[in-house]
C-alpha cells in the first residue's frame, strides 16, 4: 500500500488528473495540488497526486555520482 509512483499529468478535469506512469494511464485525484498543468510531473500515492516533482530525469543519479 505504501508504494508511490511518479507520473506525468496528461490531462485535468474536475479535480481529477489522467496521469501516465511509465506508459500506464490512470485517473488520480488532483485536488491537493493547485496550478497543475498537463506536462507536469507528480508523485502519486493512494490514488492522489501528493507532490509536484521536477521532472522524470533519471540521469539525476549520474550527476550526483560525478561529485564523488
Amino acid at each position: 500500500m505504501c508504494v508511490g509512483l511518479s507520473a506525468k499529468v496528461v490531462s485535468l478535469k474536475d479535480g481529477m488528473a489522467i496521469v501516465d506512469a511509465s506508459g500506464a494511464k490512470r485517473s488520480v485525484s488532483a485536488q491537493l495540488l493547485s496550478n497543475l498543468n498537463p506536462g507536469d510531473y507528480v508523485m502519486v500515492h493512494a490514488g492522489t497526486a501528493i507532490a509536484k516533482i521536477t521532472d522524470d530525469d533519471t540521469d539525476e543519479t549520474d550527476s550526483l555520482l560525478e561529485e564523488l
Partner: peptide, 17 residues
C-alpha cells in the same frame, strides 16, 4: 486510516470530500 505522511493526505482528502 493507516499510513505515514504519504498516505495521510489522501485520507484527509477523502474525509473532506
Amino acid at each position: 486510516a493507516v499510513g505515514f505522511e504519504t498516505t495521510t493526505p489522501s485520507e484527509c482528502l477523502a474525509l473532506s470530500n
